[in-house]
Computed example of a mutant assay.
Amino acid sequence: MASFQRYTTKQGQMWLFKMDTGINPQTGKRKTTTRRGFKTKKEAQIAANKLEQELISGTSIDNINITFEDVFTQWFSSHSKTIKPSTRKSIESKFKKHILPRFGKLKINEITKAYCQKMINEIAEIITSVNDIKIQANQIFKYAVKMDIIQKNPLEYVSIPKQQKDLINEDNHVNQRNYWKKDEVKQFLAITRQELSLRDHTLFHLLIYTGARKGELLALKWDDIDFETGFIRLTKTLFHNEGKFIFQTSKTKESKRLISLDTKTLSLLKKWRVEQIQANLANVGNNSESKIIFTRDDGSPMRLAYLNDKLSAVIKKYKLHRITIHGLRHTHASLLFEAGASIKEVQERLGHSDIQMTMNIYTHVTDDLKEQTTEKFQRYIEL
């Protein structure tokens, strides 16, 4: 809304108007513009209305040269203060690799829906997590709308193209499973028991028997294990950033959880603790690292990529069905479902904040569970 004022010059009475033109994306502060030199109030009103329309359409001189990267810089400077270092690093990586090279230098008010769809299609051909890229880029456009830099979000109605893996038939889909069946788990653990150190075997055993994330296990301290009650407390995760190890609290309150351990797992942990103490790894110094359950030989935290490398090496050597470290978490969930656990029980054990995440795993349960379902139906209908 403009305000109008009459003022005196050597040439006589003139009119001016002042108008709020939105928020400056570089400073985050509201801007006010003043336009002078109008002979009548009506002329000033006409000019003010024209400027207001330009601001609404995003064609104002104040907004016309603002790039996508300008808006990203302003948005990220405040948003980064509200998130954890691991999340900040992940977001920066996505923008640096996929978003800024395609959008960064473009004037944000000139980016069209067609261009956004084209870019999303291109990214979908490179990576499977294209939806996450869209979510991140969309935050910038939403911020630009909020700050009156643009009127409409060109990314809002862009669709995610179907991934090839979503179009394959059921027979081919079986080969894409990212989990192991029960016999495959037994084979793998038998190999790790013989081939790997007790520390590494214990880590893989825990990944399969608890469904915990690798970062959660590598952040564990001995006081997180209650050997009396048989519970393990998962409240933090290990993160590596710029050469430093950081212990972060869990991402959500659901991720902070207390889960039970079976006697076999407890026995294996006790055995590892004895070996660790004998190797003098549990008593190095007085810092927090000295209490970490799984460490390097010098007592420092382990690399997050270490388990990925070990898993890949074992799979390659013994020609096992290929899965990822995260696939061991899916394996735990699938075996829980086979054992008769409810969706809610699996959700709580895995620390999913959204039950849909658990449901997604449930839809990819093993063939054995599908066969059991068929057999249950047959037995019931033939009674």
Rank of each mutant, 00 (worst) to 15 (best):
7 Y>H: 05
9 T>H: 09
12 G>W: 04
14 M>F: 14
14 M>N: 11
17 F>H: 04
17 F>V: 08
21 T>N: 06
22 G>M: 01
50 K>L: 15
51 L>A: 10
61 I>D: 13
64 I>M: 12
69 E>V: 04
77 S>H: 05
78 S>V: 14
96 K>P: 11
99 I>W: 01
105 K>G: 07
107 K>D: 03
110 E>S: 14
117 Q>K: 02
117 Q>Y: 02
121 N>K: 04
125 E>N: 14
128 T>C: 13
135 I>M: 15
139 Q>I: 10
140 I>R: 01
146 K>L: 08
152 K>W: 08
154 P>M: 08
154 P>H: 08
158 V>H: 02
161 P>A: 06
168 I>R: 04
168 I>D: 01
175 N>V: 05
176 Q>G: 02
176 Q>R: 13
201 H>T: 07
212 A>H: 00
214 K>Q: 10
221 K>C: 10
222 W>S: 01
223 D>I: 10
225 I>K: 00
226 D>A: 06
227 F>Y: 06
230 G>R: 05
241 N>L: 15
250 S>Y: 08
251 K>G: 04
252 T>G: 09
272 W>G: 04
309 D>L: 15
319 K>Y: 02
325 I>S: 02
332 H>W: 06
344 K>H: 09
345 E>T: 12
356 Q>S: 13
361 I>W: 00
364 H>C: 05
374 T>V: 15
375 E>K: 15
